[in-house]
Computed example of a mutant assay.
Amino acid sequence: MLTGRSAEKLAAAATGLRQRTGAQIDFLAGDVADPDSAEAIMREAAEWYDGPDVLVLNAGGPPPGPILEVGDDQWRAAFELLVLGPLRLARLALPGMAERGFGRVIVITSTAVRQPQPDLAASVVLRAAMTSAAKLLSREYASEGVTVNCVAPGPTATDRRHEILAARADRLGSTFEEQNAADTATVPAGRAGQPEEVGAAVAFLASAAASYVNGTVLTVDGGRTETI
Rank of each mutant, 00 (worst) to 15 (best):
A29P: 15
G30M: 10
G30N: 10
G30P: 11
D31K: 07
D31P: 06
V32T: 15
V32N: 09
A33F: 05
D34N: 15
P35W: 02
D36P: 00
D36N: 10
D36Y: 05
D36L: 13
S37N: 08
S37C: 08
A38Y: 04
E39P: 02
E39Y: 00
A40T: 15
I41A: 06
I41G: 02
I41S: 03
M42Y: 08
R43C: 14
R43E: 15
R43A: 15
R43H: 14
E44M: 08
E44I: 11
E44D: 12
E44T: 14
A45T: 15
A45Q: 04
A45P: 05
A46F: 11
A46S: 15
E47T: 15
E47W: 12
W48Y: 06
D50S: 12
D50F: 03
G51T: 10
G51N: 11
P52F: 07
P52I: 09
D53A: 13
D53L: 07
V54R: 04
V54W: 07
V54P: 03
L55G: 07
V56L: 13
L57W: 04
L57F: 10
L57G: 04
N58P: 06
N58S: 14
N58C: 12
N58T: 11
G60M: 08
G60P: 04
G60C: 05
G60T: 10
G61K: 01
G61Q: 09
P62E: 06
P62M: 05
P62D: 04
P63S: 08
P63E: 09
P64A: 00
P64T: 00
P66N: 06
I67S: 08
L68S: 13
L68Q: 14
L68F: 13
V70Q: 03
V70P: 00
D72F: 08
D72C: 02
D72E: 12
D72I: 07
D72W: 09
D73M: 09
Q74C: 06
W75G: 01
W75V: 02
R76C: 04
R76T: 11
R76M: 12
A78G: 02
F79W: 12
F79M: 12
E80V: 01
L81T: 14
L81C: 11
L81S: 14
L82R: 00
L82H: 06
V83W: 00
V83T: 03
V83D: 01
G85S: 06
P86D: 08
P86F: 03
R88V: 04
